[in-house]
């Protein structure tokens, strides 16, 4: 009951996602509207791929990358906060904060010489860039837990695994989630630029519109990407409110 009541804020992302769905499926029908922007061009609706295909493609890239960053980044954060890995903590922390100063476009650009054009390079670039906030927040979250709580968990006879899953991760969840949220925001934006390295994303209409001087395409792509980013952010915000506060 308490859980359900806390799900209240979910209406906001639901509404935004519904709007996104509506746009994706109906944008193609609003030709007359876009003609206003681009009166002299023959074609005003981007049609090389359907918007829904591009949306799924975009989401798949982002999802794959963020899940990958979460798994790798959280494992790293967990490892360096154990006694055995503690020696690596300062280095990993410093590396993650330095990594965050590298602009995401540069990471995307550097992925191409290594991995070539296309989806794999984009996913790997997003994944690597997404690691930094997750590692940093993971470490901060796990280290921010009250020492007395951990001591009494051990004192009660919880095993290391039980402490990790039942105490540490739930208590760090909010901070970790904030890291995932940052990663996702970056991934959505960078995936759009991924169009320039040959990934098929919602960036395609924008790039194609910029190249051909077709503002209607540009607006279609930008609207969908903007809405996607905002809906997912609202979703994270709802999940964050739903997580019990621990302070």
């Amino acid at each position: 009951m308490r859980g359900l009541a806390r799900l209240g804020p979910l209406w906001q992302p639901c509404l935004l996602l519904a709007l996104l769905g509506l746009l994706v499926h109906n944008l193609a029908n609003w030709e007359s509207l876009f003609r206003l922007v681009q009166p002299d061009t023959r074609q005003v609706i981007y049609s090389r791929d359907s918007f829904s295909y591009l949306l799924w493609q975009h989401l798949a890239l982002v999802g794959l990358a963020v899940v990958g960053s979460l798994m790798i980044g959280l494992s790293a954060a967990i490892l360096v906060t154990r006694t055995r890995g503690r020696a690596f903590l300062p280095l990993v922390n410093q590396l993650a904060s330095m990594g965050q100063t590298v602009p995401p476009v540069a990471v995307l650009a550097l992925a191409v010489p290594v991995l070539g054009f296309g989806n794999p390079a984009t996913v790997v670039a997003l994944l690597i860039y997404g690691l930094f906030p997750i590692v940093r927040n993971g470490i901060a979250g796990l280290q921010g837990i009250d020492g007395a709580v951990l001591e009494s968990a051990r004192g009660m006879g919880m095993s290391a695994m039980q402490i990790l899953w039942q105490v540490e991760l739930p208590l760090a969840a909010k901070v970790i989630l904030a890291g995932v949220r940052t990663s996702t925001t970056f991934a959505i934006a960078t995936a759009a630029i991924g169009s320039t390295v040959g990934a098929r994303t919602l960036g395609d209409p924008i790039i194609s519109g910029l190249i051909n001087g077709n503002n209607a395409y540009v607006i279609q792509g930008a609207l969908l990407i903007g809405l996607l980013a905002i809906s997912l952010d609202a979703l994270f915000s709802a999940v964050d409110k739903w997580l019990p506060s621990t302070h």
């Binding site: 709580v149 001591e151 009494s152 004192g155 006879g157 105490v167 019990p244």
Partner: peptide, 20 residues
Amino acid sequence: AVQLRRRMGYAIQSTGLFPH
């Protein structure tokens, strides 16, 4: 160690109650 601790109660000054 884990089995041993389950046989012993442990209470500390800062309580260490699990906030979640």
